[in-house]
């Protein structure tokens, strides 16, 4: 098993942190091997940010991803930049409110992570909602491992908020899955 996951958006959305909790869930709590690499623009905020996580049940040599099994896009610019580089059987997960044009010939899941986070009271947790959805859509890590990873990573006073965000993300992922399955059945 080897999964190459690219999470992208604009700087300040917590894209690298999203990759960090994903890699940590896999490596520290699920007994898998994981590597995270990152790149970002010179800006403190804004600009295109991306993080790439390779997860495998074996050791990983070359640390970068070759092409993505999963693309998670949280900004239009990032989506346009990276949509070409997805494996044939790869999937795309987008925040449809931020990535309005998400036309791509890959199985696509729509997770309104930012809206969900806002409803929970803080849009800063959109990244955590998104990794929750990623977890239930791909099952690349277990929900338990992801929960542990998130709770170990965030400061104590934000634990409750992030727990709720992650749980909402798990549910949003399930919903996105069933919507995708229905669309596939109706041939859309």
């Amino acid at each position: 098993m080897k999964q190459e996951i690219r999470i992208c958006g604009f700087g300040g959305q917590g894209v690298v942190l999203a990759g960090h909790v994903l890699g940590k869930a896999a490596a520290a709590y699920d007994g898998l091997t994981a590597i995270l690499t990152q790149s970002y623009g010179p800006e403190a905020r804004g600009g295109a940010a991306r993080t790439e996580v390779v997860i495998s049940d074996r050791s990983i040599g070359y640390p970068r991803i070759v092409s993505a099994d999963v693309l998670v896009a949280m900004s239009q610019e990032a989506f346009h930049k990276f949509r070409e580089d997805i494996r044939e059987h790869g999937i795309v997960i987008v925040d449809p409110d931020l990535v309005i044009d998400h036309q791509v010939e890959r199985k696509t899941y729509r997770v309104p992570a930012t809206r969900i986070a806002e409803e929970l009271g803080n849009k800063i947790t959109a990244n955590v909602v998104m990794v929750g959805a990623l977890t239930s859509i791909t099952e690349v890590v277990t929900r338990d491992a992801m929960m542990q990873s998130v709770l170990e990573t965030v400061p104590a006073r934000f634990k409750d908020l992030n727990r709720r965000a992650l749980e909402a993300g798990f549910r949003a992922g399930e919903e996105a899955r069933s919507v995708e399955a229905t669309l596939a059945l109706t041939g859309e």
Partner: peptide, 9 residues
């Protein structure tokens, strides 16, 4: 530099 900013267990 690659390793400096690369996360691993």
């Amino acid at each position: 530099a690659e390793l400096g900013h690369m996360q691993e267990k």
